[in-house]
Design a protein around this nucleic acid. Structure first.
Length: 151
DNA sequence: GCCAACGTTGGC
DNA sequence: GCCAACGTTGGC
């Protein structure tokens, strides 16, 4: 089983929204590297941190389970969607996603500032690497367990 | 294939 | 709102 970190803006869709919805397609990823992780590497049953970005206290707020295999992101074909991509063909979809299922809120959020205090133990965690803005990134089992131990 | 211009992300 | 860092686009 693999572990992941997925970023979302809580004003748009955060862990509270996911709790209400139960399961939700992770739509709107329009970065090739992030897409490749979802399309090629994610497996049903994998676990992911939900990370809140672009907000007052960026950090990890909850846990999710990958609920499906990857499939084409339907929003790329919806003309009125902000994620519409005129260049993507149905026979050869450009953007892929998975469904995520709510697991739980963290007892207390693990903020970015707290993660930074553990740079040594978290060496290689993409979230902490300079300039890395990937919205979907892998987390090693060691990093996953260490981060959860900070809860 | 180079690279300047532009757009986006995301912390602060 | 600013801006650093990175990705994408498109002219040449």
């Amino acid at each position: 089983m693999a572990y992941w970190l997925m970023k979302s803006e809580p004003d748009t869709f955060g862990i509270d929204h996911l709790k209400k919805r139960g399961t939700e397609p992770w739509s709107g990823v329009r970065n090739y590297q992030a897409r490749n992780f979802m399309r090629d590497k994610m497996k049903e049953g994998d676990l992911a941190f939900m990370y809140h970005s672009s907000c007052e206290n960026p950090g990890i707020y909850g846990l999710m389970r990958i609920a499906t295999k990857s499939y084409p992101d339907p929003t790329q074909f919806e003309r009125k969607s902000p994620y519409y991509d005129a260049g993507s063909k149905r026979e050869e979809p450009r953007w892929w996603l998975v469904d995520v299922k709510y697991q739980r809120h963290l007892k207390t959020p693990i903020l970015l500032t707290a993660l930074r205090e553990h740079q040594e133990k978290l060496r290689g965690l993409r979230l902490l690497m300079r300039g890395d803005r990937l919205s979907v990134s892998p987390v090693s089992a060691e990093h996953w367990n260490y981060i959860l131990s900070l809860e």
